[in-house]
């Protein structure tokens, strides 16, 4: 019995509050909830600025995950849930945010969120989530100009990486660094990034005498090529920013940047919450518009 089997895919759940904002001074609290296939985030915005967030794993029940993520954020925020004026749901499971006033696509929310966390110079946003890849061009206001999304196949996504991490017994946070820690030349990319075939191919390579690091390198390279081939379709304009869980994986992202021949910009923010940030900020604009319309009607 493997009672204490380590779960290598498991990334750290977290919540946070902005100490510079005094909730007493806030007029409008809006919430953005991004229910993804792998993770769920709730962001609480105070008059359009990020005030608190919670980020956790999506369970098998999406509506519960939405509520859990919100409660986790509320816990950090230390405010009464009644104070939330408007809620926007986004992400793969957005229809499962039953208490949302409005639902928006991740496309709109990630562009807006990237504009917030990376600044208004961002023109290309690449979001590599749990099971899809999105490439977006946006203007200085975070408004979408072009987008492309691929959610037909999980190759090159976060879920694929989780499975590989578990398979090789490498904690997911260490995959990036360890994928560069091999001797000699970079191994050729594996032939298939298909999540289903990953196990077969990885075991085969290990049996051939490859080190774990070499297998990681070959997979990261293959995932990078897959991601790059998708983004190339809409082009990579500077400044280039990456959101979603995969942006934390340097093993894949550094290789994408090398293929593209450009650098990505960095941020102190948790890139996994970009979609929820965008949703919360849109919530602020939508809530203000609603109030204005009501006033006009009177």
């Amino acid at each position: 019995m493997e009672k204490n089997k380590q779960e290598y895919w498991r990334w750290t759940e977290s919540n946070w509050r902005n100490p510079d904002i005094n909730p007493g001074d806030v007029e409008l609290f809006t919430v953005g909830i991004d229910v993804g296939s792998v993770s769920s985030q709730a962001v609480i915005a105070a008059d359009g600025e990020v005030y608190a967030y919670g980020s956790m794993r999506t369970g098998s029940d999406s509506p519960t995950s939405a509520v859990n993520a919100l409660n986790y954020a509320i816990e950090a925020a230390g405010i009464d849930r009644e104070r939330v004026n408007y809620t926007v749901g986004t992400g793969y499971g957005r229809i499962n945010v039953p208490f949302a006033d409005r639902t928006l696509t991740e496309i709109a929310c990630h562009a807006r969120g990237a504009n917030y966390i990376y600044g208004d110079k961002v023109r290309t946003v690449l979001d590599v989530g749990g099971q899809d890849i999105k490439a977006i061009h946006c203007d200085e206001n975070g408004k979408v100009i072009t987008f492309m999304m691929n959610d037909k196949c999980a190759a090159g996504t976060g879920r694929g990486m989780e499975i590989l991490a578990d398979l090789l017994g490498v904690p997911i946070d260490e995959v990036g660094d360890r994928s560069f820690a091999f001797e000699g030349d970079e191994p050729a990319p594996v032939s298939s990034v298909c999540v289903i075939y990953a196990k077969t191919e990885a075991t085969g390579l290990l049996r051939k005498g490859w080190s774990t690091e070499q297998v990681l390198a070959a997979y990261c390279r293959a995932m990078a090529e897959r991601i790059y081939s998708l983004v190339k379709r809409i082009g990579m304009e500077k400044e280039f920013a990456v959101t979603g869980g995969m942006s934390k994986n340097s093993g894949v992202m550094d290789r994408v940047m090398k293929l593209a021949g450009i650098e990505r910009i960095t941020t102190q923010w948790d890139t996994q919450i970009a979609g929820a940030i965008g949703a919360a900020i849109f919530g602020h604009s939508l809530c203000k518009n609603k109030k204005r319309k009501k006033r006009r009607r009177r």
Binding site: K143, V144, I145, F147, N150, R233
Partner: peptide, 15 residues
Amino acid sequence: MLANYGYKDATGDYF
């Protein structure tokens, strides 16, 4: 906005 709907697979691009 140019909204691209579709996918890319081994047989080509369908957007």
